[in-house]
Amino acid sequence: MVAPGPRPDADQAAELHPATHDFLKALANPTRQKVMLLFAQGAELSVNEVAEQAGISQPTASQQLALLRRGGILASRRDGKVVLYCSNKEGVAAALADLQAYLGVCC
């Protein structure tokens, strides 16, 4: 996720950064919310581990992880042939800051 930049004026603050839209979309699904909780204690998990622990199929886990990564909630790294996922606190903080700035202008 690209971190939203500083907002120089109110007109720009009245629009959410596209990455923040992806963040909100990622939060809007009960399956993704369940998957997010697997990473609460700093876990680093593969797609297969997520599928097993969340009780979902591997293709579903892969799709949900991709959306969470696009939303900046998770980060990934490759370890040989395996992709490992972990929480992305910086991405979440950036999206929340953008959302807070937006809400400060509109509400």
Rank of each mutant, 00 (worst) to 15 (best):
M1V: 12
M1H: 09
A3N: 11
A3M: 12
P4F: 05
P8I: 04
P8A: 07
P8K: 02
A10F: 07
A10V: 15
D11R: 12
A13R: 13
A13K: 09
A14R: 15
E15N: 11
E15Q: 13
E15G: 07
L16W: 05
L16G: 02
H17L: 07
H17E: 07
P18H: 03
A19G: 15
A19H: 08
T20E: 00
T20F: 01
H21D: 11
A26W: 00
A26C: 03
A26V: 06
A26Y: 01
L27T: 10
A28F: 03
A28R: 09
A28P: 07
A28Q: 08
N29G: 11
N29F: 10
P30K: 11
T31G: 08
T31K: 11
T31C: 07
Q33S: 14
Q33D: 11
K34P: 04
K34Y: 04
V35D: 07
M36G: 08
L37E: 15
L38A: 07
F39L: 09
F39H: 05
A40D: 14
Q41S: 14
Q41Y: 05
G42Q: 04
N48M: 08
E49S: 03
E49H: 02
E49D: 09
V50N: 00
A51C: 00
A51V: 00
A51Q: 04
Q53N: 10
Q53V: 01
Q53R: 14
A54Q: 07
G55L: 03
S57C: 06
S57Q: 09
Q58A: 13
Q58H: 06
P59T: 01
P59L: 03
T60P: 06
T60S: 15
A61W: 00
A61H: 01
Q64K: 13
Q64V: 10
L65K: 02
L65C: 00
L68Q: 03
R69Y: 08
R70Q: 14
G71F: 03
L74K: 05
L74H: 06
A75H: 05
A75D: 08
A75Q: 12
S76R: 09
S76A: 12
S76P: 01
R77C: 04
R78I: 10
D79F: 10
D79M: 12
D79E: 14
K81E: 14
K81A: 14
V82C: 03
V82R: 11
Y85S: 02
S87P: 00
S87A: 14
S87E: 09
N88P: 02
N88Y: 04
K89F: 05
E90H: 04
G91M: 00
G91P: 04
V92G: 03
V92H: 00
A93V: 05
A93F: 05
A94D: 00
L96K: 13
L96A: 10
A97N: 12
L99G: 06
L99N: 06
Q100E: 15
Q100R: 15
Q100A: 15
Q100K: 15
A101P: 06
A101T: 10
Y102W: 13
L103F: 10
V105E: 14
V105G: 02
C106W: 12
C106N: 12
C107E: 12
